[in-house]
């Protein structure tokens, strides 16, 4: 592990915060126009318990939605990857579903399952994030070179063996690429539900209460907290990718 690998991103964040602070200071913007980083510290210390509790709620529901998206997305991807007919049938449906802005689905879901707040939040996180996973898995499987299949089939391997030995590992790089996209999407889904639902929970609800109380530094602090969670989850995916699909990374030079 190279020390500059840690120092460079930390420096980048500090520079960013410095520029932000300078921008607010030079323009002499009031809080309600744009909070500055120096306002965020007090907001965090004042509400740190709420940040922990709500942050955890947002995190676990996002991860739950993401896991559901992985299971369903992979299953759909497998169905579409192995069967042409299913691909032709399912693709337009999926594309259509994905094209619907999820913000419009939120009130429908909220009405459909009134009170089931955890369930609703997970459902939206899932609905917004499974599509890239399904597409990448199906593309990974359907673009498998026929020679790979032939080599194993000529040895008498079953479809299941071909899937485990070749199709699955070969699809992993595409899968992780999609998962990185899905992580951020799932956060959007979770927060949509948290902000819109009355008496919601999670960071989205904290944001909403900041809005209601005109506590602008709190709103900005929630955004930063969301960004931190997003970065955290993203790098978890990066680590998993390194472990399971590190072979796909070519050494530069």
């Amino acid at each position: 592990m190279n020390i500059s690998k840690v120092i460079t991103p930390v420096l980048a964040v500090l520079v960013f915060l410095g520029l932000w602070e300078a921008l607010v200071w030079v323009n002499d913007w009031p809080n309600y126009k744009m909070a500055s980083p120096s306002d965020l510290g007090p907001a965090f210390t004042r509400y740190w318990e709420l940040f922990l509790v709500y942050g955890w709620q947002t995190l676990w529901r996002t991860v739950a939605g993401l896991l559901l998206a992985i299971v369903v997305g992979t299953a759909l991807g497998m169905i579409m990857g192995f069967s042409r007919t299913m691909r032709d049938g399912l693709y337009p449906l999926l594309v259509g579903f994905n094209a619907i802005p999820k913000a419009t689905v939120v009130p429908i879901i909220a009405l459909m399952f009134v009170g089931a707040h955890d369930f609703n939040t997970i459902l939206i996180a899932f609905m917004i994030s499974f599509f890239p996973i399904a597409v990448s898995v199906s593309i990974g499987l359907s673009t498998l070179e026929p020679e790979y299949r032939d080599i194993l089939r000529s040895l008498g391997a079953s479809q299941m063996t071909i899937f485990w030995k070749i199709a699955l590992p070969k699809t992993l790089p595409e899968f992780f690429g999609a998962l990185k996209v899905a992580v951020t999407l799932a956060f959007i889904g979770t927060n949509l539900m948290e902000i819109v639902s009355p008496h919601g929970r999670g960071l989205g609800a904290l944001f909403d209460s900041g809005k209601t109380n005109s506590d602008y530094p709190l709103m900005f602090a929630v955004l930063i907290a969301l960004a931190v969670l997003g970065i955290l989850l993203y790098y978890v995916v990066v680590v998993l990718e390194k472990i399971f699909a590190g072979w796909a990374e070519r050494q530069p030079g």
Binding site: E147, I151, L155, K170, W247
Partner: peptide
Amino acid sequence: RGPRSTVGMAFQNPVLLEW
């Protein structure tokens, strides 16, 4: 009548598993 393991195959594309 079907695939049999007494056959070995090599193609123009070596199709080695990258992982």
